[in-house]
């Protein structure tokens, strides 16, 4: 089966200057990840592992130093290719406070992607806005509100609704539940699984929280310092991790369901350098 979206052998280097010297930082080094139809792929890793940079390359916000993005198996090369890709792939950002325009009413913000892609007339757009709001479990009157009048959970639902407006086949979600309270996070995760099942969406879900990845994803890709250290079905990676890094990451997770086993970082050996009198 051809993947809907694939980043193949993606490399990204940034150049920084420090004290007049040029330094090359390899943020992503030869990473290949593909998402099939209806599949939820998790990208997990700690700050600076390159997961966000890689996902931004997939949608063209960032340009790869080398490597190819493939859309339905065909390399994305021209401006028209990118436009077609963005018609199919939408990106949901971590922070709905900064990704929604503070002076634009929710209804306008939701209709904007339709205007950009030239979809529908005024009444059709209004209808699609109502549909999208109900899809994410919000009432119609929300359309008249400003982002500042909504709670964090409502705002993240609006961001999701906005990404769904043009009926994409793939959603890239970058840490979209990390800023939310646990009970709101559960509501958004439940919504994502419902949307995935009813719309057959594919998700590329980026998170540093392995508990969320374990719950939501079919397949997981573990990244460290710009490279993939392990990938596979979640049951396998979480049940029998092959790399030491994944094992360390799993051992570092606080988990109220786990009994008696100390976390890796809590063992004296993992508690780097603390010297107590």
């Amino acid at each position: 089966m051809t993947a809907i979206l694939e980043g193949r052998n993606i490399v990204k280097t940034f150049t920084t200057r420090r004290g007049g010297q040029k330094h090359e930082v390899r943020a992503v080094g030869d990473v290949t990840v593909a998402a099939d139809r209806g599949e939820i792929v998790g990208l997990v890793g700690e700050s600076g592992c390159g997961k966000t940079t890689f996902s931004r390359i997939l949608i063209g916000i960032e340009t790869a130093s080398s490597g190819t993005v493939l859309h339905d198996g065909k390399p994305v090369a021209t401006k028209a290719d990118w436009k077609a890709l963005r018609r199919d792939v939408q990106y949901v950002f971590q922070d709905p406070y900064t990704s929604l325009c503070p002076t634009m009413r929710i209804g306008e913000a939701l209709a904007e992607p339709l205007l950009v892609h030239g979809i529908g007339d005024k009444s059709e757009r209004a209808e699609r806005v109502r549909e999208a709001l109900s899809l994410v479990g919000l009432q119609g009157f929300i359309a008249d509100r400003l982002p500042s009048q909504l709670s964090g959970g409502q705002r993240q639902r609006v961001s999701l609704a906005r990404a769904l407006m043009i009926r994409p086949r793939v959603l890239i979600c970058d840490e979209i539940v990390s800023g939310l309270d646990v009970s709101v996070q559960a509501q958004v995760l439940t919504l994502l699984t419902e949307l995935q099942a009813s719309l057959g969406l594919s998700l590329i879900f980026i998170s540093h929280d392995l508990r969320v990845i374990r719950y939501l994803c079919d397949r997981v890709v573990v990244m460290y310092r710009g490279e993939i250290v392990e990938q596979g079905p979640v049951e396998r990676v979480f049940g029998a991790p092959e790399s030491d890094y994944t094992r360390g990451l799993l051992a570092a997770i606080p988990d109220h369901s786990r009994r008696g086993e100390p976390r890796l970082g809590l063992r004296p050996a993992g508690h780097e350098g603390a010297r107590l009198a």
């Binding site: 709670s151 959970g153 646990v182 009970s183 709101v184 996070q185 559960a186 509501q187 995760l189 439940t190 699984t193 392995l210 508990r211 969320v212 374990r214 719950y215 939501l216 979640v234 049951e235 979480f238 799993l250 997770i253 988990d255 109220h256 369901s257 786990r258």
Partner: peptide, 24 residues
């Protein structure tokens, strides 16, 4: 109880859906 049912753990999966606390 609602908080514990809302929080994914290393053993959770979509086969056993989270039970979010309704409302806000």
């Amino acid at each position: 109880i609602g908080l514990l049912n809302s929080a994914p753990t290393l053993e959770s999966s979509r086969a056993h859906p989270l039970k979010p606390i309704p409302g806000q």
